[in-house]
Design a protein around this nucleic acid. Structure first.
Ligand SMILES: [Zn+2]
Length: 476
DNA sequence: CGTATTTGACCGGCGC
DNA sequence: GCGCCGGTCAAATACG
């Protein structure tokens, strides 16, 4: 069911229109597809661009006329610097004496030539235009990457301060992120959340799509594709209970500041301590404002789990409907009571793809290896929730930056987006050079055995993973 | 023996 | 109300 939902969104991305595409969002999300057409929007509309082009050509023409003016040329021949017309003009002069008919011919030839020259000029201008567009794209790329980094840094900073902010709502961290995003991006555009129901897709098409894209990008290692996915949904009462219980428990212990750092995850049972009325009241007052962000990363990995630098403890496994592969539930154990959870499941269609869905916010400092991922997912979630992206494609485009920031060692050309809202995905191939998100079994015990015991299909891959867990362990 | 994993039970939401 | 389903719990088990 859930996998089906994510599939939907993946597919949906390709078909979403982006009428409000802003320069920031338009850039960079794809230099290789027809999206280029969209990037044209950077410059005014088509009409305006045409006018601009025409002006430029006219200008060239005038310059040419001016140059020749000093020589006393009546015919305003454009000086193209190609010496196309010099011989012609001399012959023209001689032919002018011959007669009017030939001079007419020559005039026609002149015009044809002039036209050709102008067309050549136009072509050059077009090339120049394209180049400038690419440059602007790159500048915007850098700009967005910097913005992501800023958000990331702010996230990390807030994690160690202002517990009150976490208090605001149940899923405090998410809200804090929203604020930061609002600060980071001065424009707050009410974001149109994508229509979940409309998000229909098949995983296969997405995979093939990404394959093509990464080939476009790198020409090599087409399996190194990155898709990061974000999904946003109203929090379920499950989360509500959990968060509420956390809040309550801390308020019982201390009078103020139920810092998430110390409340962490609290067993759902605690919520039973609350009177149902409390739960109802709290849920009703928070339900409307809660948005629960989940960020899912799709990694092409043969191991049973990707290494994101954190320490996870498995607390459950279920057979998800519609997917022969089981879904594993992990809880972060790096910090005591860290509320972060993740679900790991293989893609039904392509079992080499691991779909890892993160939920929550770490309440503890992260090792450098985990920093990139955590901050990226946070940024992704906050970007999603903040509504700072006017359109799904905007989200998508920034997603590529998130993906790159999450994978600093992964060449940008290998990071592709298959965009979608509410989910876009990053794929990371096992052959990526990145130290990050590399296949690994974690902790020490090979997770392969878990799946191999019951699910052969899922398990066989992990043993053949080309990566050595040692490297991951060493990075911690 | 301490810790992590496994796995069936349990819970709550949701649709009918 | 009932069944399905996703998610979580926790006792049993495995492991180093
Ligand atoms: Zn954590």
């Amino acid at each position: 069911m859930e996998s089906a939902a994510s599939d939907h969104s993946i597919h949906n991305c390709r078909s979403i229109e982006q009428p409000l595409l802003s320069p920031e969002t338009a850039v960079g999300h794809d230099h290789h597809g027809k999206r280029i057409v969209d990037e044209l929007d950077f410059f005014a509309d088509n009409k305006g661009r045409l006018m601009e082009m025409r002006d430029q050509t006219v200008e060239v023409k005038e310059e040419g006329a001016h140059d020749h003016h000093g020589v006393g040329q009546e015919k305003q021949l454009p000086d193209t610097g190609l010496n196309l017309l010099t011989t012609y003009t001399s012959s023209d002069k001689s032919s002018m004496d011959d007669g009017t008919s030939s001079s007419h011919n020559m005039e026609d030839k002149h015009r044809t030539n002039e036209l050709a020259v102008l067309q050549a000029e136009l072509g050059r201008m077009n090339v120049e235009n394209q180049r400038l567009r690419v440059m602007i794209s790159q500048v915007n790329n850098n700009y967005q990457a910097l913005q992501v980094q800023i958000v990331t840094l702010q996230n990390q900073k807030v994690d160690h301060q202002t517990p009150e902010q976490h208090k605001m709502i149940n899923n405090g961290s998410v809200v804090v992120e929203e604020k930061q995003m609002m600060n980071g991006f001065n424009h707050i555009v009410p974001r149109q959340f994508m229509d979940m129901g409309r998000a229909e897709k098949d995983e296969l098409s997405q995979c093939s799509l990404e394959g093509c894209r990464s080939q476009d990008c790198s020409g090599s290692s087409p399996r190194n594709d990155i898709v990061e996915s974000m999904e946003c949904c109203k929090s379920t009462s499950h989360v509500l209970h959990r968060d509420l219980s956390g809040r309550i428990s801390t308020t019982n212990g201390g009078e103020d500041s139920p810092d998430q750092e110390f409340q962490g995850w609290v067993p759902k049972k605690v919520s039973k301590m609350m009177s149902p009325r409390d739960v109802d009241q709290a849920s009703s007052e928070t339900m409307s404002m809660i948005k629960k962000a989940r960020v899912s990363v799709r990694a092409r990995s043969e191991a049973s789990m990707i290494s994101d630098g954190c320490q996870w403890r498995k607390y459950g496994q279920k057979m998800a409907k519609g997917n022969p592969c089981p879904r594993a539930y992990y809880r972060c154990t790096m910090g005591t009571g860290c509320p972060v959870r993740k679900q790991v499941q293989r893609c039904a269609e392509d079992r080499t793809i691991l779909v890892t869905t993160y939920e929550g916010h770490h309440n503890h400092p992260l090792p450098p290896a985990a920093m990139a991922m955590a901050s990226t997912t946070s940024a992704a979630a906050s970007m999603l929730l903040s509504g700072s992206m006017p359109s799904a494609d905007g989200l998508i485009s920034s997603n590529s930056f998130l993906a790159r920031s999450a994978l600093p060692n992964c060449p940008p050309s290998l990071a592709t987006l298959s965009a979608s809202a509410p989910i876009s995905h990053c794929h990371i191939g096992p052959h990526s050079n990145s130290n990050f998100l590399r296949d690994a079994t974690w902790p020490a015990k090979p997770a392969a055995s878990k799946f191999s015991s019951k699910h052969d299909v899922c398990a066989t891959n992990s043993r053949s993973s080309p990566f050595q867990p040692i490297e991951i362990l060493g990075s911690r």
